[in-house]
């Protein structure tokens, strides 16, 4: 397998009135071509900010630390994403090699422009298709994602579609440019379970067919278990555990990942009490010293937890965890 995108030492801060806020700190990972990665974490963990960094899409007050590097491997060779400046350069990644699907499809479509016009517009922006070709491809894509009566839907506005239909149209639009990487930010959270199941099935089919890489951002571990090949778990801007989906879900190593799985209500044992992860996620203005999870961790092993952020420690060849418990040289 060849790498699709490599993130090295990504550190990202936002300049605000209250000072510099660290959103992502020293995150590195690689996604291979055709691989599906689940990016898991609670609100404020930096998962959406990380995904936006891949398209250099963060707000103007974002400050990337000097060592941060994101390399996208395209057919024309590697692209250093963070060095892109002009809109023309940025179009290589935004909507070109990378497409994004958002959580709320109603907010992502322009309300006063028909679905069809929006699809054609973005195709013409990213390719040298004629209007007629772009229209034909758009209708074909709508058909591919299971929308019936596509010719009529093409001329409709976003409000005329139901929630599930809108999300399908969003997926059709994102895939019509044939991106090498699809970023899906909580794409099923706003949908009912029955529709969520349909959208998950659709996405699995599309992965097989188009063979693209997907980063699936979600807080729902069930969705991750159903879709992803590997999982990255983030907490307060740090990558704290990464590994293959079976390893991470069946045998989580980090106390936070363990807590997250224990907090899920399970249908096969209704008597099991619900065990929350104690406490709240700290405000990004009050990042704890040492390990970022030390304010909520029930398995503190000693002073080290309060002094230093643990490095990523390999559990086996593909599974890594950033926790002092697994350090062999710990005092």
């Amino acid at each position: 397998m060849t790498p699709l995108i490599e993130v090295e030492n990504l550190t990202l801060q936002f300049r605000t009135d209250e000072g510099l806020i660290t959103a992502v700190e020293d995150v590195s990972f690689t996604l291979m071509k055709g691989e599906v990665m689940g990016l898991v974490g609670e609100s404020g963990s930096g998962k959406s900010v990380t995904a936006k960094a891949l398209m250099h899409l963060n707000a103007r007050n974002a400050v990337y630390a000097p060592g941060s590097r994101i390399t996208l491997h395209t057919e024309a060779g590697p692209v250093d994403v963070l060095s892109l400046k002009t809109p023309r350069e940025l179009n290589i990644v935004r909507g070109g090699a990378i497409s994004m699907i958002f959580q709320e499809p109603m907010a992502s479509f322009a309300p006063a422009i028909t679905i069809g016009k929006q699809m054609v517009e973005q195709l013409q922006l990213h390719s040298d298709m004629t209007r007629a070709e772009a229209k034909a491809l758009s209708i074909e894509m709508l058909d591919r994602v299971g929308i019936s009566d596509t010719a009529r839907r093409f001329g409709q506005y976003a409000f005329e579609l139901s929630g599930g239909m809108r999300q399908r149209a969003m997926i059709a639009m994102a895939l019509s440019t044939k991106p090498a990487l699809l970023i899906a930010d909580e794409p099923t959270t706003a949908l009912d379970v029955t529709i969520q199941a349909q959208v998950i099935d659709l996405m699995k089919d599309l992965v097989d067919e188009f063979h693209m890489g997907i980063i699936f951002i979600t807080h729902d571990l069930g969705v991750v278990a159903q879709t992803a090949d590997k999982v990255n778990v983030m907490y307060l801007g740090r990558l704290i555990e990464e590994g293959p989906v079976r390893g991470v879900i069946r045998d989580p190593k980090h106390p936070y990942t363990q807590g997250l799985i224990a907090a899920l209500p399970k249908l096969d044992d209704l008597d099991a009490p619900l065990t929350p992860v104690p406490g709240d996620i700290p405000s990004p203005l009050e990042r704890p010293r040492g390990c970022v999870f030390n304010t909520r961790c029930a398995q503190i092993v000693g002073e080290a937890c309060h002094r230093t952020m643990p490095p990523e420690i390999p559990v086996d060849e593909s599974h890594q965890v950033a926790c002092h418990i697994y350090r062999e040289d710990r005092e």
Binding site: S162, T194, Q196, Q198, G222, V245, I249, R250
Partner: peptide
């Protein structure tokens, strides 16, 4: 029954066994 089977399973090897509902409400 359909609502139950639509809940995504936590077991990565239990993919796609659900009886899926077609269409929308």
């Amino acid at each position: 029954k359909a609502l139950f089977s639509a809940i995504p399973s936590l077991d990565p090897d239990d993919r796609g066994t659900a009886q899926k509902l077609t269409g929308e409400i």
